[in-house]
């Protein structure tokens, strides 16, 4: 009873705010609604007993990805009213995308309810979510896990290579050099005669 009510509430909020992401005029509001969608989805995961995925969703998507979205969107200086004009020309393309999504969902649903045996992890209520995850992730799917990590590493290195540039003649703080300075290397003692400068 309570679970059903919560499910419909969360599902409604998720879908409604997902709609609002597309509909709302202000892009920052769009990101806010996207966050609401993520959190509702996390709530749905908790209802399914997958609290680990739920918290991971909040941590990764809401805590990191959406913050970066917000960063970019907040700093955009685009006239969004102008951008929204001619919006309808994307309608056919969006329609095709929606159709593909619908087809995929129908296929997944049909496959799920077809009665064929599915490859699923056995539900073992003795162990926590986390343990079950670890057991599968680091044994059966160890290779895919490592491969995913490598892909992310490559992406990270790529991003750094693209943005890192060493310019000549730019003054930078070199900490080790600063710390290595001693009075002997930093101070020069000069005997000054009165009426003459330090020059030459």
């Amino acid at each position: 009873m309570l679970v059903t009510i919560s499910f419909y509430l969360l599902a409604f909020v998720a879908i409604a705010s997902a709609m609002m992401v597309v509909v709302s005029r202000n892009p920052v509001h769009s990101v806010m609604f996207l966050i609401v969608t993520f959190i509702s989805a996390a709530g749905l995961f908790i209802l399914m007993g997958a609290e680990f995925i739920a918290l991971l969703l909040v941590m990764v998507y809401v805590g990191a990805v959406a913050v970066l979205f917000l960063f970019v969107v907040m700093m955009l200086d685009v006239d969004f009213v102008e951008l929204k004009q001619g919006f309808l020309q994307y309608l056919p393309f969006g329609f095709v995308l929606a159709l593909i999504l619908l087809a995929e969902m129908i296929m997944v649903g049909a496959a799920y309810f077809s009665g064929e045996s599915k490859k699923m992890v056995k539900f073992d209520s003795e162990k926590s979510n986390l343990e079950r995850f670890g057991e599968v992730l680091y044994t059966e799917y160890a290779f895919f896990f490592e491969a995913a990590g490598l892909v992310l590493l490559v992406a990270m290195i790529g991003a750094i290579v693209l943005t890192l540039r060493e310019r000549e003649g730019v003054k930078k703080q070199d900490v080790s050099k600063q710390i290595a300075r001693t009075p002997e290397t930093a101070i020069e003692m000069v005997d000054l005669e009165s009426g003459k400068g330090v020059g030459s």
Partner: peptide, 25 residues
């Protein structure tokens, strides 16, 4: 007393940044 308390604290504290970033914007 949940089993993934550490993760929960991390997740919630990562949400805390929104209060500041939204307020600033």
């Amino acid at each position: 007393d949940i089993n993934i308390g550490v993760l929960y604290v991390l997740a919630i504290s990562s949400l805390g940044v929104y209060g500041i970033i939204i307020g600033g914007w």
